[in-house]
């Protein structure tokens, strides 16, 4: 997400130059359709949802991003609550010691800023595309001393400049914030239900 922010900063700089002479080239933001939402028939129903402690991490290239954690945490909590797989999400330890960790790792395209700069300087004639890839890891310790259940998945946000709309890239969103919200929501929903399908999930 910080890469997206950097990309948009570069874009703002060059498009602002460009806008003195020519109409700004619109950036388009897509959420990859490969993952999607969990289908209603694939959703797991938990007989007796249990409380769990939640700890999250958001990394860029494997390094914790303190600012991004603050932005993403409310989204993760919102979508986890919507799954109804847990009775409560706590920031402190719960009675049975259940612990859920969720980690997003944003794999950065090191040329993102340069691509944005080039696209802006050429008023969008040098069309460009950047994929913002995410590795998402879930680990759930059902109770103190037990081995964790695990789930891993991948997701992506794609940004284009100077290109026509291309539905093959994913679902288009007008605002980066909305695209990030959907990417986080689909990841959390898929990851949580992947855990809930495993034996040993609390309250099953």
């Amino acid at each position: 997400m910080s890469k997206l922010r950097a990309f948009f900063a570069a874009l703002a700089a060059v498009l602002s130059l460009a806008s003195f002479a020519a109409p700004a080239q619109a950036a388009k933001i897509y959420v990859d359709n490969k993952l999607g939402w969990v289908k209603p028939e694939d959703k797991v129903q938990i007989a007796s949802p249990q409380p769990v402690q939640l700890v999250i991490d958001f990394q860029t290239d494997g390094v914790t991003n303190a600012k991004a954690i603050k932005e993403v945490k409310p989204m993760i909590v919102k979508y986890l609550q919507q799954t109804a797989l847990f009775s409560t999400l706590s920031e402190t330890p719960v009675a049975n010691g259940a612990l859920l960790t969720v980690r997003f790792n944003n794999i950065a395209d090191k040329n993102a800023a340069g691509k944005g700069f080039k696209a802006g300087l050429t008023f969008g004639l040098a069309a460009t595309q950047v994929a913002d890839n995410y590795d998402v890891d879930f680990a759930l310790v059902p109770a103190s001393g037990q081995e964790p259940l695990r789930a891993q998945l991948k997701h992506a946000i794609i940004l284009t400049i100077g290109k026509k709309a291309d539905p093959s890239l994913g679902t288009e969103y007008k605002k980066a914030k909305d695209a990030v919200d959907v990417m986080v929501g689909q990841s959390v929903e898929q990851g949580a239900h992947a855990l809930a399908r495993q034996d040993g999930f609390p309250g099953k």
């Binding site: 703002a12 700089a13 602002s16 806008s19 003195f20 700890v55 303190a66 954690i69 603050k70």
Partner: peptide, 29 residues
């Protein structure tokens, strides 16, 4: 053009930001 100038200044100019309080870390926990 005013909007463009403001965007340019914001993207190229300096800024100061304050970090949020530290969050618990998975490995430490």
């Amino acid at each position: 053009q005013w909007w463009a100038a403001a965007a340019l200044a914001a993207s190229l100019g300096g800024c100061t930001e304050t970090l949020p309080p530290p969050a618990p870390d998975i490995e430490g926990l």
